[in-house]
């Protein structure tokens, strides 16, 4: 940053902005406040969602661990998220390479096609898969669930790895080929190291997106394929005890761990800050 910009920045930062500050504080309260109350309620000794909590106990954590659908749901969610992330990357990374290095006609059309599943509302995508693949063709619920989640993650895989590929100089790959390396060696020794941050970012983003998804998982649940968020949603709709608050605290702790991993791998703000653009 030049000196004049630095001085301008300091001058502007010194100004008081009362209206903007009040609005910003309100924004943080709305984003964070309800989550803090969930944490408080999770440790209640009472049996309803009441505030302030009645006494302190860990009984709802025990109740959550004993409730079968949550454990089954957790297992399903982890399997689907891991499977969909791996397939989306296995399909998406080669496609990204072809889009950026393939000198194909209609490149931008192909790229937009790969980004298109994200444009359709998730419930609509879920309905299409449910109607046509599960009911129409009789594909199993777990198979369609995996296809749906893979489609959901494919745009992230192509966009995020594509962004890191555009930073790489194609001349490096050409040099490797010119020095006698085959296409496979060139990919693993030259291209892949460049892509690694992008792949790591897409993997973290994809895993979290799939794990938390409700619309697809809800429409595509067969017997025994309810994911954890769907099991939680259905529990909250029928009973009013704080067991879901306890599960929420566990998920919150897991999200903090994921955030720390993301920060170590590529940078937390870098991975998740790209969602809105």
């Amino acid at each position: 940053m030049s000196q004049s910009a630095a001085r301008a920045r300091v001058r502007l930062a010194r100004e008081r902005r009362p209206v903007l500050t009040v609005l910003a504080v309100a924004a943080y309260l709305i984003m964070i406040g309800p989550v803090i109350f969930v944490v408080a309620v999770a440790f209640t000794a009472g049996s309803t969602i009441t505030f302030p909590p009645e006494g302190f106990s860990l009984r709802w954590f025990g109740a959550a661990a004993d409730y079968g659908p949550f454990l089954d749901g957790l297992w399903t969610s982890l399997l689907v998220a891991a499977g969909a992330t791996v397939i989306a990357l296995a399909v998406g990374v080669p496609a990204t390479l072809a889009i950026h290095r393939g000198r194909l006609p209609g490149r931008s059309v192909i790229q937009n096609l790969f980004l298109s599943p994200i444009v359709l509302p998730e419930l609509v995508l879920g309905l299409a898969l449910y109607q046509q693949l599960m009911v129409g063709l009789g594909v199993t619920a777990s198979g369609v669930l995996l296809v749906g989640h893979t489609l959901l993650l494919l745009p992230y895989a192509v966009r995020v790895t594509g962004a890191s590929l555009t930073l790489a100089d194609p001349a490096l790959e050409e040099a490797a080929r010119g020095l006698g390396a085959g296409p496979v060696t060139t990919f693993f020794r030259v291209t892949l190291p460049v892509l690694r941050p992008g792949i790591a970012a897409a993997a973290v983003l994809g895993f979290v997106t799939s794990f938390n998804n409700v619309p697809l998982s809800l429409l595509l649940q067969g017997s025994g394929t309810a994911t954890l968020p769907v099991a939680m949603l259905q529990y909250v709709q029928t009973s009013y005890d704080p067991v879901v608050a306890a599960v929420s605290v566990v998920l919150l702790a897991a999200s903090v761990v994921v955030a720390v991993i993301a920060e170590r791998l590529v940078g937390f703000n870098k991975i998740f800050g790209g969602i809105g653009s």
Binding site: M31, I32, G33, P34, V35, I36, F37, V38, V208, F211, N212, V214, P229, M232, L233, V236, V244, A245, S248, L251, L252, S255, V258, A259, F268, N269, F272, G273, I275
Partner: peptide, 14 residues
């Protein structure tokens, strides 16, 4: 940004 990592069910439960 952190709330984006947290399930919609958890955030709505709040």
């Amino acid at each position: 940004i952190f709330p984006l990592l947290l399930s919609n069910v958890v955030r709505t439960y709040g």
